[in-house]
């Protein structure tokens, strides 16, 4: 491993102050340390934020929940308030990684995990995300796990998180403190599409520290689900995942949230697809129509075209389950 400096921050302000160019914050380390060992990431310094008091889950004045950036994934998923009020979120977290990883990984780190694209990990191959300008190995290469939406000719990587897909559907807000003070970022704006700068995953600026994730009061607890489809029953990243939340008025959809994972550089939401559900009866045909709206620009590559059909079917299934579900179900 390359040499790097290590320091432990005593406060958020101190952490931000130390975040010079080339440094990285480390908390759970479940992704960063792997990438350093693989020589994919080469930070010159690590600022350890794991002891900052950002690990609580608290009520917000607006009736929602504030998830501390350093709250562990497992603690978040098993928090009774999360389970009762945001079952979709709890289910999404538990669909990810393994029990051991969830015990280590933090919520903030989960947002910032890097893609699992093979080419990103293998330093002998081209990857614009790892080494800008080197090319995209996955385009024309092995691309079974890659994007069908929002990709560019520079990068077709996908964001691997499950948690983020649910946060996107719930319209969470990411709270950040940085050199310019504190600010809030609507979840949909946190991650960016690759475009011609695939090396940049998010809108965070150097020195920005995620402190919390605010969940709004509406949790779609009665009619929601998280459906993850993968190549084995556990410990695999999503080929396609769906976070679905509905508000029902009898058999009619009053409001809808729909986010897709495993298909793009960020959790994929589309207001038009949700609009296609609202005010309509909750039927498979309507769900399929909405899915087709969401997937209207989907484009496959040699090995991943199946994801388009799979995503459509998964959306129909997830919405069907969400509509059927009565009351909060524990995952």
């Amino acid at each position: 491993m390359r040499s790097f400096t290590y320091s432990r921050a005593g406060s958020a302000a101190e952490a931000v102050g130390r975040a010079a160019a080339g440094t990285a914050f480390v908390a759970g380390g479940t992704n960063l340390l792997d990438l350093m060992k693989a020589d994919v990431l080469r930070p010159e310094g690590l600022v350890d934020i794991s002891r900052l008091p950002l690990d609580r889950i608290e009520e917000t004045a607006e009736g929602g929940l504030r998830l501390g950036a350093l709250a562990r994934n497992a603690d978040t998923a098993y928090d009774e308030r999360v389970q009762t009020r945001y079952p979709m979120l709890s289910k999404a977290i538990l669909a990810g990684a393994s029990a051991q990883l969830r015990n280590m990984a933090t919520n903030g780190g989960n947002l910032l995990q890097r893609t699992r694209c093979y080419y990103f990990y293998d330093t002998a191959t081209p990857c614009n995300k790892r080494q800008p300008g080197s090319g995209c190995g996955a385009i024309g290469g092995v691309n079974r796990i890659h994007a069908i939406l929002g990709a560019s000719d520079q990068c077709i990587a996908v964001h691997p998180s499950d948690l983020c897909v649910a946060l996107a559907a719930l319209e969470a807000v990411v709270r950040v403190t940085g050199p310019d003070g504190e600010r809030s970022i609507p979840f949909a704006e946190l991650h960016r599409l690759p475009g011609d700068r695939p090396e940049i995953d998010t809108v965070l600026r150097p020195g920005d520290l995620v402190t919390a994730i605010d969940l709004p009061a509406r949790g779609f607890a009665e009619h929601s689900t998280y459906l993850k489809i993968r190549d084995r029953a556990s410990y695999a990243f999503a080929l396609v995942s769906v976070a679905a939340g509905l508000e029902m008025d009898g058999d009619t959809v009053r409001d809808a949230r729909l986010a897709l994972g495993g298909v793009a550089h960020k959790p994929w939401r589309d207001p038009e697809a949700e609009a296609a559900l609202i005010g309509k009866p909750a039927t498979p045909d309507r769900f399929r129509a909405a899915a087709r709206v969401l997937l209207r620009d989907a484009k496959g590559h040699e090995h991943n075209s199946f994801k388009i059909e799979l995503a459509e079917r998964a959306i129909v299934r997830a919405l069907t389950e969400a509509a059927e579900r009565k009351g909060a179900s524990r995952p």
Binding site: Y118, G141, R232, A233
Partner: peptide
């Protein structure tokens, strides 16, 4: 990847063997 002549999923995360849940 036949262009590179190289196996790309060379780790336990992406080369899938059964897990207990399977």
């Amino acid at each position: 990847d036949h262009r590179l002549g190289r196996v790309m999923n060379h780790d336990y995360a992406e080369y899938h063997v059964p897990v207990n849940a399977d």
